[in-house]
Write a protein that binds this DNA or RNA. Structure first.
Length: 253
DNA sequence: TTGATTGTTACCGG
DNA sequence: TCCGGTAACAATCA
């Protein structure tokens, strides 16, 4: 489910719902990773996304850390609370709404040190104002790894997943097997700008849309080549390769 | 029942 | 140290 846009959208949404309220954090099915230290009912001070990580900070200095992994989902409902659907790990209940989090790879309570350590190891996040593009440029320019691998490496660039990887590289006419150090700085600058724009559209539309016309609206369909047979530019066949254990698609003109 | 999936980490070998 | 490959984990759906 999630690439970076999903998590940032959730953070924005949950801020509106929960900020400043006392939030009950529970584990209706007892499936929390770290059941010994559940927050009972604490005022929620901040809700932030860093790449694909979601952090809820509470007044007692505990931080709820969520990473949805490949399968995780967040479901939002109005009160009153309903029975859990599927395998719910964590439930947050506020004044008007509750959210259920299903299938995250990480759901844990951490302290401030662990939080800063986490933030330090995450690369520049395209959707954050404090992101430094030069960190991304430097990592790529000094790497012998493939750009297809580097884009998925969250310590290099935070927020991109498998679909955006394929679509971005196609839009920039870069083959996913190109080595990082072989890519021109100007290409990386253009990639950064495009990636940020696409993720912002994703947050707004709650959907990955990479097939935009000049006015910024989606044309028919929402993706260009991901899981497609033909290139919309040249009508050539789309190829598939596996990079970093995931399927990447590309067009060789 | 099998396979695929918008993700990440640990571990190993080169 | 870096890079690629593999396994493990998460849950759901076709």
């Amino acid at each position: 489910m999630p690439e970076g846009h999903t998590i940032h959208r959730a953070a924005r949404d949950h801020r509106k719902l929960f900020l400043g309220q006392k939030i009950a954090v529970s584990s209706p099915q007892g499936r929390f990773n770290d059941g010994a230290k559940l927050i009972s009912s604490q005022k929620c001070l901040s809700i932030e996304a860093y790449g694909k990580h979601l952090l809820y900070e509470f007044q007692n200095n505990q931080v709820l850390h969520i990473h949805l992994g490949l399968f995780g989902r967040i479901r939002r409902r109005k009160l009153p609370v309903e029975d859990a659907r599927g395998a719910v790990r964590v439930r947050l209940v506020g004044n008007t709404h509750f959210i259920d989090i299903n299938g995250p790879t990480i759901c844990e309570i951490m302290g401030e040190e662990a939080k800063s350590k986490l933030i330090r190891r995450i690369g520049p996040d395209l959707l954050r104002k404090d992101a430094d593009p030069n960190k991304f440029f430097d990592r790529v320019k000094s790497s012998k790894a493939k750009i297809g691998t580097l884009l998925m490496d969250q310590s290099v660039l935070a927020g991109i997943g498998n679909i955006y990887r394929t679509e971005l590289l196609w839009r920039q006419s870069i083959h996913p097997n190109t080595l990082g150090k072989e890519i021109k700085k100007s290409q990386l600058e253009s990639l950064w700008i495009d990636a940020r724009a696409l993720l912002k559209v994703g947050v707004k539309q709650n959907k990955i849309i990479t097939n935009l016309n000049k006015t910024g609206n989606a044309k028919k369909g929402s993706l260009n080549i991901y899981k497609k047979k033909r290139c919309p530019k040249c009508r050539g066949a789309i190829s598939k390769i596996e990079i970093s254990g995931r399927t990447a698609f590309f067009c060789q003109y």
